[in-house]
């Protein structure tokens, strides 16, 4: 379940990141279409909230919140690092995480 939480955090942050012009262009070499921004933001926040829910499910609320903060920090740093050196890989990882998260959550 912690793995699911991490995947959700990473995917969520990736979505929020892609919702920014600068980073969208880094990855897609295209400008960000207006409608897409709202979708990406919504999905991004959803990912982060679900990540918190996963942590709370696994560990209870007090421990879960602490774990969530840690996961957010690490997922964010990982994303930034990948984005700087391998933007396509960062995107692929986001897709993989989004797909894997429900499976990991179900398996837990």
């Amino acid at each position: 379940m912690s793995a699911a939480a991490f995947c959700l955090a990473y995917a969520g942050f990736s979505a929020l990141c892609l919702a920014m012009d600068r980073h969208h262009e880094d990855v897609f070499d295209r400008a960000l279409p207006r409608g897409r921004r709202l979708w990406l933001r919504a999905l991004g926040w959803l990912g982060l909230v679900l990540s918190l829910a996963a942590c709370a499910t696994a560990w209870g609320w007090s421990y879960g919140i602490v774990e969530w903060v840690g996961i957010l920090s690490l997922a964010g740093l990982l994303l930034i690092w990948l984005l700087a050196y391998r933007p396509r890989a960062a995107l692929a990882a986001a897709g993989a995480c989004a797909a894997a998260a429900p499976l990991l959550a179900w398996a837990a």
């Binding site: 942050f13 990141c17 964010g76 740093l77 930034i80 700087a84 050196y85």
Partner: peptide, 26 residues
């Protein structure tokens, strides 16, 4: 600038981005 990290820009810009990223995310 939450996700901004431009190491290839080099020099002060790269250090600044790195410092900001590490600081903000943590």
């Amino acid at each position: 600038d939450f996700f901004t990290f431009r190491p290839r820009k080099g020099g002060q810009r790269a250090w600044m981005d790195g410092h900001n990223a590490l600081s903000v995310l943590g």
